[in-house]
Design a protein around this nucleic acid. Structure first.
Lengths: 220, 220
DNA sequence: TTGCAATTCAAACAGTTGTATGAAACTATC
DNA sequence: GATAGTTTCATACAACTGTTTGAATTGCAA
């Protein structure tokens, strides 16, 4: 254990380089040069390159997830177990958007790293994302409680679309800016959050016709 | 020129392998082995590996784009220069969704390739995607004509969200299936198209204008 | 100080990658 | 059927990759 100086220097250097140049062309040698440590130190402290990447991503992920759940829990407690759907959706997409958008020149390394992780899709990160389902289920539960009349299928689709809009906006923020010739202000994060939440809410509440359990939905 | 047999054998083999195993771990040697040709043939016919990938992607892209524009043009001509927003959005996301979704066991190689291209993001493909903006502008134009009261910013956001829902659903179809325990039927492509179009339409028409909301089956 | 484990280091390893070469095998034209 | 141009081929190249090794160094406890 000792000082952990080498270990954290590697983590910091790796995150910075990945954020700047992407996973594709950053080698272990780049990382150790940036960190000022020996090449073998990576394998000594992390086991392998993939485990280093995984540790970086996991650390940032649980931070975001904790934020999300904190917002969600607070909202449900205040509403006596039932939170308005807008608030739930805001807890879902807010932390991610706030973490990854905002004025480019003042984006944290962590934010830029997470954007990279969202754009490029490297095996160790994909493996972790697949275990994120349990986390999403908590939001499914909250949404069900908030919209008890809504079918499960609609809930799932609403969740899917909310995440879609948030993640796609992060991934393609550059393209949207170019397409709109700067008219879409992606630096105003709260406006983006509001837009996403508003559309997702409409998707989940529109056409609230009576129970139209047409066919197979009756299951479960 | 001669027979082009080698050239097309390489293209076919490459597309198949990339579709099956992703760009990450398919080497030129894998490709030439699958195609039954010599290693040097790739560089002889395509110049480099990246140009091979680019050619594959460009071919599929212009096919999709042509479909999109065909649908769009037909709709606008029929409406005398103005098409309903739902139809425009359907022309935008329909071809892509139809090309990439549907019963997994009967997905074409081309479809699986495009899904890979959407999930992993490899440099030559990214470069091409960045030139796709001109194509999107045509849809912006059509949307403006269809919704003259709507601000440009709203149009851009609507387009962005429509693409977001379509692409994210393709990218994360597996996760959505797992999360919903199979309740979201991604094989029913037309239903997916309808859902995406319906939500995007709401995003573009809500808050203003009288309900032109064609009571489409928002959900079933 | 001595001893022992944890850490760092330079160096090499083993493999893979995309690409280049120059000769051989074709193909079509005259 | 010779010839010029295209295409194929086996092979080598050169560079880079993550990982391992075993010796040196360090830090700490007895």
């Amino acid at each position: 254990m000792a000082s952990d100086h080498t270990r954290s220097a590697i983590l910091a250097a790796a995150e910075r380089l990945y954020a700047d140049r992407g996973f594709g062309d950053v080698t272990l040698r780049d990382i150790v040069a940036e960190a000022g440590v020996n090449l073998a130190a990576v394998n000594y402290h992390f086991g392998s390159k993939d485990e280093l990447i995984a540790e970086l991503f996991v650390t940032r992920s649980i931070a975001t997830n904790r934020e999300r759940l904190h917002e969600l829990k607070a909202a449900e407690e205040q509403g006596g177990g039932r939170a308005p759907i807008e608030v739930i959706l805001r807890a879902l997409v807010g932390p991610t958007l706030r973490g990854c958008l905002g004025p480019e020149n003042q984006r944290s390394t962590a934010a830029r790293f997470m954007i990279r992780a969202s754009i490029e899709s490297v095996p160790p990160i994909r493996r972790i994302k697949n275990r994120e389902i349990d986390h999403l289920r908590k939001f499914v539960g909250a949404m069900r409680r908030s919209l008890p009349d809504r079918s499960d299928v609609d809930i799932y689709w609403g969740l899917n679309f909310a995440l879609a809009m948030a993640h796609h906006t992060i991934r393609e923020s550059e393209r949207l800016t170019k397409l709109s010739e700067g008219k879409c202000d992606l630096d105003d994060v709260e406006d983006v959050v509001t837009r996403v939440v508003s559309v997702a809410t409409m998707a989940l509440t529109a056409g609230r016709m009576e129970p139209k359990v047409s066919s197979k939905v009756a299951a479960r």
